[in-house]
Nucleic acid binder design. Structure first.
Lengths: 345, 345
DNA sequence: CGGGCAATTGGTTGCGCAATCATTTTATGT
DNA sequence: ACATAAAATGATTGCGCAACCAATTGCCCG
């Protein structure tokens, strides 16, 4: 039995505190909200009453009365993907000190779930929204547009931003990797991708574009799956790549580092020499990339920054510091950077 | 300029929808809440009006009026630690389909931040709380006790649970690792730990207990830091261990797999043969553990389960299915499991 | 075709708080 | 000490919704 909790304790209100402190409810409200204009001795009296009673203000009532929610809604497609950890950290690190709360939804890469989450979220009068990518359903987009709430689309560069867009061009990043591998004189370059969300597809597009321009594109070397990404999946897709191409492949761009780590592992097992015989490039630059054997070449991305910058922009919009109201440009490019280690020649 | 959003659109209310549909507000409310007892034709009329107007109910008003929030508060100490990803996934996977929302707070391993978060959270009339560990401040504990909200403490076994406790004994897990290393005839066994949160300390305690009983404990072989854990930190602490003990050490228990991966990396660099010359055991069994070289022995833990089980217990408490009101035992042991791979003989 | 009953619909009220404006108290200067 | 301004405090009201109970409607049966 774990039922050592009281039942139905009557909720304390401002009035209770006011009675105890011998002031009016509104004065208590002012103390709670830290607004100036309360004499020190009264403030103290009220604070003591609050402490003794253990009063906790009712947020719903406050939001309803003031229509200020101090709430930021965040929609991300996955909780298992480490990438979003860093983004979230960036968001929380800015939001929390400002006394804002974060309501987080996992959309599982589904625009429909995303639409549902947007609807739910807008019901809470959020003061800002951070959403992933630009593939909202028309209905979700319409709600967002109509809402008068600052919206930041993060992660990728988006075609027509709803409001603000913070991220980088996955297309260009994919192209840069293709160019890198070409420059290192790999000739039969493949691609391994899992999950294949919109941003992964953009990387593939950019990648294919460069290869195709160099007359080096062979679609047989592109192995993808809708299943989630993992190290094991990387190893498995690599085996598939080797089978499909009958070994006629000398480098691969993996859509993330987990996959690439799996490829590296599999290469060792198959006695394929990386980077001489075979080049491997990942994406994201997770910590393990530097500690792999050989160390993994990859693409570094400012995940933390995307989150923190998005939050900062929302605050800037809520509370314009500069005179020219919205000097915020629609697209903030957080960039990317090739990190060349030992898995490519 | 990114200011393509309308300003101050008057918020739609039940009344607006009611007027449009030609019914009373309360009927609209019933449709919105999906309660039975609305004739199909009226329901449809209302639904059309909702869709045309794009009405979104105001959650604060609803919570205030009904004191049902459909909100679960979650307090975790870190967003960067992968461990909590899995826990969170477990929580969300149960909460979301039940139409519950999750309000997540990062306490940064600080009981003070935790207390603040508890206060904030209780102001939102949550229907359940999931918090990490049992080291709440007295004030936080008191608020929690007084709140009549189901509280689940997760991750570790807790001395005196506030309400329900889901986790496993880190003490026993640490002891089990010590016993394992002893059994594999390692004699000079060390410990490497970062962050040193309460659960890590419990693992160390259990570990020391066994070594001490076997007369094999040497505190010089225990290297810890308060700094966060990482692969790099593992390598660094290992170097420190080797310096401090002048190489008089033949195995190490790392408080998590990241650290252990760093140790493995450093061993390779220093040409130390794992597992013959030196044994390494990690903790958590993250995916990379199996793909390390040599594959890492570690301790597997049901992280996802801790989250999902915690949520299920909250639902059970909110909405008792069984007749015997609270047949929930105070402590649910999610267990752990030694996973022996190639980094130990 | 009508009586009786269950199912459906609506009116009123209050949830707890903050905005607004009115009132009282305090400080300042002469 | 008094006038005046300035600051602090209080009273009233409404935010949008659901609970509660009352009124109405439709349905089924004889």
């Amino acid at each position: 039995m774990a039922n050592n909790k009281p039942q139905g304790a009557q909720r304390l209100t401002l009035k209770d505190v006011a009675a105890k402190a011998g002031v009016s409810p509104i004065t208590v409200s002012r103390v709670v909200n830290g607004s100036a204009g309360v004499r020190a001795n009264i403030r103290e009296k009220v604070e003591i009453a609050i402490a003794e009673l253990g009063y906790i203000p009712n947020r719903s009532a406050s939001v309803l009365a003031s229509s200020k929610s101090k709430l930021i809604g965040v929609l991300i497609p996955s909780l298992s993907n480490v990438v979003f950890n860093d983004v979230l950290r960036g968001i929380y690190d800015i939001a929390t000190p400002a006394n804002y709360q974060v309501l987080l939804f996992n959309t599982h890469y589904s625009p429909e779930e995303e639409e549902r989450a947007v609807r739910t979220l807008l019901g809470q009068s959020p003061e800002g929204l951070i959403i992933t990518g630009g593939e909202q359903t028309p209905a979700a987009r319409a709600m967002l547009q109509a809402s008068a709430v600052p919206v930041v689309q993060i992660m990728g560069e988006v075609d027509k931003p709803i409001d603000i867009n913070v991220g980088f061009s996955h297309f260009e990043a994919g192209a840069a990797v293709a160019q890198l591998l070409l420059n290192r004189s790999y000739l039969k370059i493949g691609f391994i991708g899992a999950r294949m969300d919109p941003r992964t597809c953009q990387r593939l597009d950019g990648f294919e574009g460069i290869l195709s321009a160099a007359n080096r594109l062979d679609k047989k070397r592109i192995i993808t799956t809708q299943k989630p990404s993992s190290v094991a999946m990387g190893a498995s897709l690599f085996r598939e790549l080797m089978t499909t191409t009958q070994g006629n492949c000398d480098a691969v761009f993996c859509c993330n580092d987990d996959l690439a780590l799996g490829v590296l592992h599999q290469c060792k097992k198959m006695h394929i020499d990386v980077p001489k015989q075979f080049g491997v490039c990942g994406f994201n630059d997770i910590e393990m990339a530097a500690y792999a054997e050989p160390a993994l070449s990859t693409v570094r991305v400012n995940r933390y920054n995307m989150g923190s910058k998005a939050m900062e922009l929302i605050f800037e919009k809520i509370n314009p510091q500069t005179d020219e109201a919205s000097s915020i440009s629609a697209y903030i490019n957080t960039g990317f950077e090739l990190v060349i280690r030992q898995s490519t020649r």
